[in-house]
Simulated scan of single mutants.
Amino acid sequence: MSRKLVVGNWKMHGSRAQVGELLEALKAGSARAQGVGVAVCPPFPYLAQAVGLLAGTDIGVGAQNLAVETAGAYTGEVSGEMLADVGCRYVIVGHSERRTLYGEDSALVARKYKAATEQGLVPILCVGEQLSEREAGTTEQVVAAQLDAVLDLCGEAALASALIAYEPVWAIGTGKVATPEQAQAVHAFIRGRVARGADTPTLLYGGSVKPDNAAGLFVQQDVDGGLIGGASLDADHFLAICEAARS
């Protein structure tokens, strides 16, 4: 890809006041992210606020999840059609917290991926292994199975130009981070598995990315940017990560 992409996943954090303050700070510091694709994924209640505040900027807005269904008696669910209607461009599917805390298996994640694309949204497909799986040497098998669920449902072309975030589960919210070499190895595996001819996916690293480790990750050949968790809630930290993606 020609430029890096940095996406902030705010998870279940924020208030109207905090969202306003954070986004105004990002806009004020946007020169620090020049040449880098930037997006934020707030919780559902703040999506419309974010879209409004970011209108006229190059910062995209995404959601953190979506339903498989388009409409109906599904209390508590939010459809891709609704997300597109309020102005979302992206949506995260298959985040490890959805898989581990809410029991979303790869078959369901694949259906969500398909639902997102059908509404014109750009899904950010999350894949990654547990610590026990890395220690057992099965990282590639685990990641392959997660990718294959989408390929089997949506076809080979579905991931060739997709956004895929590799997030080692053992490095999310733990303060641990994969070494640049570990991240590169898995990213190269993913690219080799899903790239088709000239089409190649955009691969983001997600797993405790901070200003002090971002540069070492982003210089890796197959790391095209990051899916940023906690650091995305601090404007200065998030912009510092965007700056690291410029070099």
Rank of each mutant, 00 (worst) to 15 (best):
E21P: 11
I228R: 05
P43M: 01
E81C: 11
G175F: 06
C88W: 11
T179P: 09
A116L: 06
V93D: 12
D236M: 14
R111E: 15
G94N: 13
L108V: 15
E243S: 14
W10Q: 12
G14Y: 00
V177K: 02
L53H: 05
T174P: 03
D236S: 15
E133P: 02
Q184S: 08
A28V: 10
V40P: 03
I164K: 02
H13D: 11
G87V: 08
A48Y: 02
E77F: 04
Y74N: 13
A31R: 14
G216Q: 15
T138V: 14
M12R: 12
G226P: 10
L203G: 01
A67H: 06
S96I: 07
V93C: 08
R193D: 09
L66R: 06
L163I: 10
M12A: 14
K114T: 13
G128H: 08
L233F: 02
G173N: 05
V109M: 05
P180D: 07
T75C: 13
L23S: 07
L159W: 00
I172S: 07
E21C: 13
V142A: 03
V109P: 14
L203E: 00
E140N: 12
G206S: 07
K112W: 01
A171T: 04
V91S: 05
A28T: 13
V78A: 06
A157R: 15
A55W: 03
A67C: 07
Q182C: 08
Y46P: 10
S2A: 05
